[in-house]
């Protein structure tokens, strides 16, 4: 349920914010969170900002994967190699963004 789209806040005007969804696609949305500032990344659902995206947490999930791999590595030694290639891939992806 609840299709959410990621956008970047361009301006805040009272209870409304103008959000850029990438490639010049902008729309306004109700501010449904405590506060938003220009430049924040947000999740918009059907015309309302329901949440902010946290930069700090962004890659957190890959740490879970790392833990999973470590656990597997203990059970099956070959699991470790996955992590190596994942690391490379992540690095490529992140540094490749312009």
């Amino acid at each position: 349920m609840c299709l959410g789209v990621y956008g970047k806040v361009l301006r805040v005007e009272g209870e409304l914010a103008v959000v850029d969804f990438g490639g010049g696609l902008t729309r306004d949305a109700l501010v449904g969170v405590e506060e938003v500032r220009e430049g924040d990344y947000v999740v918009v659902h059907a015309g309302i900002i329901v949440s902010r995206l946290s930069e700090e947490e962004f890659e957190e999930v890959f740490r879970y994967v790392e833990e999973a791999v470590k656990q597997l590595a203990m059970i099956e030694s070959r699991a470790a190699e996955y992590l190596e290639s994942m690391k490379m891939r992540l690095e490529e992806n992140l540094s490749g963004q312009k």
Partner: peptide
């Protein structure tokens, strides 16, 4: 011991360009 590289450092080293909209599509559909 295997550790993941610090992604945040990479993001910062790329400059303030870290566009989370773009990163999401790039990382999570790879």
């Amino acid at each position: 011991m295997i550790t993941l590289l610090n992604i945040r450092d990479v993001v910062i080293s790329v400059g303030q360009q870290a566009d989370l909209r773009y990163l999401t599509k790039k990382l999570f559909r790879d």
